[in-house]
Design a protein around this nucleic acid. Structure first.
Lengths: 249, 249
DNA sequence: GGCATGATATTGTCCGACAATCCGACAGGC
DNA sequence: GCCTGTCGGATTGTCGGACAATATCATGCC
């Protein structure tokens, strides 16, 4: 019958006002925020309150600091910050490798198709470079995993669709540990990945969306085989590795 | 030759420690956090510092408050909190409706297929209920939009894949405003949506993944037609409506 | 022009304080 | 028995002030 009466502490109201300003682009990316003291003066709250508001925006990725800098600048959430939040949420929702794999299966062919349709010359070059780096097989397992991720990223980037780019990140992040295991344990993994990558690159170069999507679908199915061969149960929860090295010790 | 020497302010270190504890499930969901004073004592920092750390975790959705409550509890990020962050990021990355639509096109058929394969009896009932609510056509434009979103949510839920559930939210949120325009301007929109929904429901009931995916693909393609008929440019940036009513006035 | 230098501004952190209010217990009335 | 009113304690939200460390910037020097 009645709606709960709304109340919000000052630190929340302050952060919402600033957030709104950023989303409405009244505060533009790269612009420096006023100093904490100045904000406190304008909002007529204490500096501690302002600081709490800033911390919220900071972890949303809307504010950031230039390396070693002191002032806060308006930034837009990076792939990393968005991906971090999302993969953290997925880990807490007990997502399993099979769940992430299934999502990959759904999304990646579309990404490959988009890349084939719209890739620019530069994006194609970047994609080819990523494939080459993996193909060189510089031995290290962790480097290899990074290169696979970089390849997927380059592909999403070539699709020129920010939604794809942002969705890509968390899935790759979550699969990283298990992918490392596959590369370690399945001898033919590198070869198969390399083959798929170069086939997809070729399709993207030829702007052949259909073939790109098909190869990608095959590629993703292959990952599932990889899990089975490597003896990783599909019901393993992802993100067991998270939380340890989340950033600062 | 040398890595930049790491330094992190105390509020960050504190929040990372707590975050790690949560991700490692040493702090379980639903558990109450110690009081701020107690945390300050244990971490040997000031209460203000602890509060800044808590604000960060709060906006990550890892901590929350029970309605009207005072204490903080460990929570896992809800679809809303994750979706909010993601759609905010997408808005700032200037994602356009066509980008979101493309992602929808990639993901939704997979979701429908997963739902068909794994739906439980309850999930099916929820999906049918959602479809019925929309079909009743209770007139209001905004209610209709909500019901469409609820339908997609129910479908993702039926897929029993947390990745799908979490990815669904932000896309729907971003499409909401334009969907409202479509329903307003395109007379036959309701009918077509209703037809697609019931076809998909039927396929899900019959556990026919292929048909479910095909109908969903058609359904999503239809949305694109809707945009064109409604005269919404596909290059419209999503989230122009965001930022205004982000929460608190 | 580029670079050392010093003054200034700003952040990170602390301390102490107080009002509001949530919580739990407790008593009283229907 | 259950609901309501009361009350003390605990906890959060907010404030003011303080200070060390250091990023920033204008200055002067080569």
């Amino acid at each position: 019958m009645f709606h709960p009466v709304g109340y919000a502490p000052a630190y929340l109201r302050v952060s919402e006002v600033i957030r709104g300003r950023i989303l409405r682009r009244e505060l533009q990316e790269g612009e420096a925020l006023p100093t904490e003291t100045e904000l406190a003066r304008q909002f007529e709250v204490n500096r501690s309150t302002v600081r709490e508001a800033l911390r919220k925006l900071e972890s949303n990725g809307l504010l950031g600091r230039r390396r070693g800098g002191k002032r806060l600048y308006v930034t837009r959430p990076t792939r990393e910050s968005v991906g971090g939040g999302l993969s953290q949420a997925l880990a807490l929702h007990r997502a399993r490798v099979v769940d992430v794999w299934e999502a990959l299966q759904a999304v990646q062919p579309g990404i490959a198709a988009a890349a084939a349709e719209r890739r620019s010359v530069q994006a194609l070059a970047a994609l080819e470079a990523a494939a080459r780096r993996f193909a060189e097989g510089t031995s290290g397992r962790d480097e290899a995993v990074n290169e696979v991720a970089a390849y997927f990223d380059a592909l999403a980037e070539a699709g020129a669709n920010p939604v794809f780019s942002l969705l890509n990140e968390p899935m790759l992040r979550l699969l990283r540990p298990s992918l490392a295991v596959i590369i370690d344990r399945v001898p033919q993994a590198r070869g198969r990945i390399e083959a798929a990558q170069s086939a997809i690159v070729a399709a993207v170069r030829a702007r052949d969306a259909k073939t790109a999507a098909e190869w990608m679908a095959r590629h993703v199915r292959d990952f599932r085989r990889g899990y089975e061969v490597a003896g990783i149960p599909l019901s393993t929860e992802v993100g067991d590795a998270l939380g340890g090295a989340a950033g600062v010790s």
